[in-house]
Nucleic acid binder design. Structure first.
Lengths: 212, 212
DNA sequence: CAGCAGTGTAAGCGAGCGCTCAGCGCGGAT
DNA sequence: ATCCGCGCTGAGCGCTCGCTTACACTGCTG
């Protein structure tokens, strides 16, 4: 039986706090399976087999297949929000904030492309109530980006036709990385983040790009 | 029973050549259903009901549920390739080519966001052989964009760190529109395409933007 | 030692799935 | 008048799904 260790380069430090160990292995197996085939095409038997357990073991730790997806999705969204918030908080000006935010956001979607695929593309499989929780986190992320773009425009650092549309475009670039990035991609997550940082600042019409 | 006419603003001129009429109605119903809930979460009974038929009617016109997806996906990819090719062929220089390509590519993904969602996000549900056909079309599209970006760099019109990455970014912006655009979005498909044309040309470091 | 909470399994239930099949109605050709 | 073939249907087959149940093992506590 193939365990997690043979299922690709899954970072061992994901969810170090999840207890017991079997629950974390189930989350890792869920991420792997959902990312590869999509939530609806994944069976509880797939997940259990990937985690090296019997199908019934899933229900010892999660009340349903959907609850497993929710645990994965919420955790991922919280990571992204925290990472974006940190970039903005640490930056001295909107241009630096946008650069750092794009670098980290993009690198996260590349390095964690497996979980990112679940986070970005399996949303609508969530039951309504749990979808609401995740949707709220997504709104926070979007507002964060829109606000910093608007601040940059107000400060005369950026020149864009429409701040909302520009913010959407910034997020789109990063999100879409999860769709196409693989471990065989030519650029490392950090290199890609750096490239995208350049592209985005120019896209926003930033006069002078702050150093990375 | 709810027919296609109540299932949202589906353009009537999609696939005017598909015969008989019932086959086209099934494709429209399939697009609607696959876009809303995903291929695997959609049942043949859903599709048939949306098209106003019994479940068995699907199999008069398509050999399988997957074949219906393939018909939709191939047609969509061919439309996108044709539209992109036309933009490049008609343009006098790479900068104009990129602007026109982005405008039309983006506007297509906005106006046809329902079919675009199926085209871009339900790929992996295709059986291997049919996936190959679609993957080939996707490579054509990607090469088209990469080539025109590289030509622009060679002509000194664009300044990018990495042409391949920049081309990916250009496509990403357009593709991701299918994920978030709805009929209630603030900008029309054409307005969005125009905005994105501006953003992309600046992103590519184009010195002077050609008029749209 | 007994009792118990936590963790796991083998077996299988009820439901809904993709798809099949025998046959019906009807317009057009003979 | 008869027949054919296309489009379509009602019924349902075989299968797999998410999930449940009854039970077993382990290690800790009293």
């Amino acid at each position: 039986m193939s365990g997690i260790s043979s299922a690709g380069p899954q970072p061992a430090d994901l969810w170090p706090e999840v207890q017991p160990d079997a629950a974390r292995r189930l989350m890792l197996a869920g991420v792997e399976s959902f990312a590869r085939r999509g939530y609806h095409a994944t069976t509880t038997r797939d997940i259990a087999a990937t985690a090296g357990m019997s199908p019934a073991a899933l229900y010892v730790h999660f009340p349903s297949k959907a609850a497993l997806l929710f645990a994965i999705s919420r955790s991922g969204h919280e990571q992204v929000l925290a990472l974006a918030q940190q970039a903005v908080d640490e930056a001295a000006d909107p241009a630096t904030a946008v650069r750092d935010l794009v670098e980290r956001f993009t690198a996260w979607h590349a390095r964690r492309h497996t979980i990112a695929r679940v986070v970005q593309y399996e949303l609508e499989a969530l039951p309504e109530q749990q979808y609401g929780v995740v949707a709220s986190l997504r709104k926070d992320i979007e507002r964060l980006v829109r606000d910093v773009v608007e601040r940059g425009c107000a400060d005369g650092l950026f020149t864009v036709g429409d701040a909302g549309t520009a913010a959407r475009a910034v997020l789109s670039l990063g999100v879409d990385v999860a769709r196409w990035y693989t471990d065989r991609s030519r650029l490392t997550p950090e290199e890609l983040g750096s490239e995208y940082g350049d592209l985005v600042l120019r896209m926003l019409g930033a006069a002078a790009t702050p150093g990375s």
